[in-house]
Every structure is written in C-alpha cells, then in structure tokens.
C-alpha cells in the first residue's frame, strides 16, 4: 500500500507534462527556426555569407534580371541551422523561433530575401490517398540511414509524455509490414542503401515517404561524402520534407499534421 502512495506522490510532483496544444505551441527562449532575410541585404553581403555557410545553403542571385529576383535565398533543406550567417550579418538575417518549416514541396524550403512568408504544405499537391487513408491513423516505420542519431532521438521524443504524437493517431511501428510509410533520417550511406530499399519494399502500398532532417533531404554536412548512395531518392517520390539539425518534435508533428 505504502508503495502505491509513493508512486502517487511522484506523479503528483510530476504534474501534467504534455504540451496541450501542439499546433500553436511557442518555443520559449531562443530557438533556431525559420530564418528571415531582410530585403535590403546587398549582393556583397550575400556573397560573404554564401561563402561562410558550411553547407552551401545560401545562393546569391546575380545577373541582369536581378530587379525582379531576390538578392539571395537560403535553402532550409541544406541548412544545418548553425546561425553563423546571422552572426555575420546581424539585422539582415535572423533565425526566428518559428518551428513550422516542413513542406511537401522541395522549393518551398527555400527562403528568399525580402519575402517573409511561412513555410507550408501545398494542399493541392498532397496525394489523395494520403488524406483519404491516413488522416485518422498513420503508422510509420523509421529507417536510420547514416545520420548522427539526433533526428532519431527527436523522433522518439515525438511519442513521449511531452509531445504525445499518439493523440493524433500517429505512431511509429516496429515492422515495415505494419507501416503506412517510411520516415528516413540520415544522408543514406552506401552501406545502408540496400537495407533501406528492402525496408521500403516491405511496406504495403500505398505508402508515403518522409525525409526527416537536413542530412536526409540534401545530405547536409555530409553532402560531399564519398560514402553516400542516394539513388533510392531518385526512384521514389517524397511526400514530406522536414528540415532541421535535428528537426524539433514540434516541427515533425506539425509537418505531418499539415500533410494529413
């Protein structure tokens, strides 16, 4: 009996840990989310940060048609969120705490200077069967293919007592046979390429593919590595891109919910 009281005491102290509304949750303090690039960034400044960027995520638009183009853009699919461009150009580039940065359209991950708009899912491009079949229950199988295990830990955190993704009927399952889709983390190494393909084949159709983390989307800091084999991505179509290094659980959950 006394033992039960002990646990009740711990639970009382534990309190309610869950984030009540994941859709409108705001992260406290600093968080490196969606960047905003000021419209008055100069080409010279853009070139400086493009050179600084460790993963080549910043592109500078030079050329004659510049008048109707943004000076530069930052690709969140490549970005490792080191924030060095902001430190180099304070006031011109700023990483906001907007964690909703997932999209089903690769190009929507590219943030242009002078254009402040949220990253979003294009509902018109979501495959019909995703919404008709998976809206109320989505079972996912995760495959780790060369990542650093940070994205994996955040995916685990999606199901923990704080974020409780299960409340939306979204769960990770043990077998690809039980899954409606794959969540891929890591840049996809040569050594993992075959296992990933086998796992994909084992998921019954229709199935969806989510790339989780900048290294999965573009290779990230490993994009130049000779040990990768990203051919798998040429054979399949991607349903959702979730940028981050690693993506925050709120980014993951909101991205999936936007897709459904």
């Amino acid at each position: 009996m006394a033992m039960i009281f002990e646990e009740i005491n711990i639970l009382r102290r534990h309190g309610k840990q869950f984030v009540p509304d994941l859709r409108s949750a705001v992260l406290p303090g600093i968080f490196r989310g969606r960047p905003v690039i000021s419209g008055d960034i100069t080409q010279a400044e853009a070139e400086t940060v493009a050179l600084l960027c460790p993963v080549g995520a910043i592109a500078v638009n030079s050329g004659k048609n510049r008048s109707d183009q943004a000076v530069c853009s930052l690709d969140l699919g490549k970005c490792v969120f080191c924030r060095e461009c902001e430190f180099s150009l304070p006031g011109k580039i700023q990483f906001t705490n907007d964690h909703k940065i997932a999209s089903n359209v690769r190009e929507r991950l590219i943030v242009s200077s002078g254009l402040e708009q949220p990253v979003s899912v294009d509902p018109l491009l979501v495959r019909r069967e995703i919404r008709s079949l998976f809206k109320h229950a989505l079972k996912l199988r995760q495959v780790s293919a060369g990542g650093d295990n940070a994205a994996e830990m955040e995916l685990n955190a999606c199901g923990n007592v704080n974020f409780d993704m299960g409340r939306y009927g979204i769960e990770f399952v043990a077998s690809p046979r039980h899954a409606d889709g794959l969540v891929i983390t890591g840049p996809i190494t040569q050594n993992m390429a075959e296992a990933l393909q086998i796992c994909y084949n084992a998921v019954p159709s229709p199935k969806m593919i989510i790339l989780c983390g900048s290294d999965a989307i573009s290779g990230g800091i490993f994009s130049q590595s000779s040990a990768l084999n990203r051919e798998f991505l040429r054979r399949i179509s991607v349903d959702l891109y979730i940028p981050g290094n690693p993506p925050h659980p709120l980014t993951v959950i909101n991205g999936i919910l936007d897709l459904l």
Partner: peptide
Amino acid sequence: GYQHRAIERLFVERSGILQQSV
C-alpha cells in the same frame, strides 16, 4: 558500418574550421 559516412575523410577534405566544427 551501416552509418559510415566518411567523417574522418571529410575533416581533411573540408578544410574550413566552421565546416569541421559542424
């Protein structure tokens, strides 16, 4: 070996200290 992404080699190929820090 499944996670091998040639990190030690990348330290040599990517000579920038920021890149290496990442």
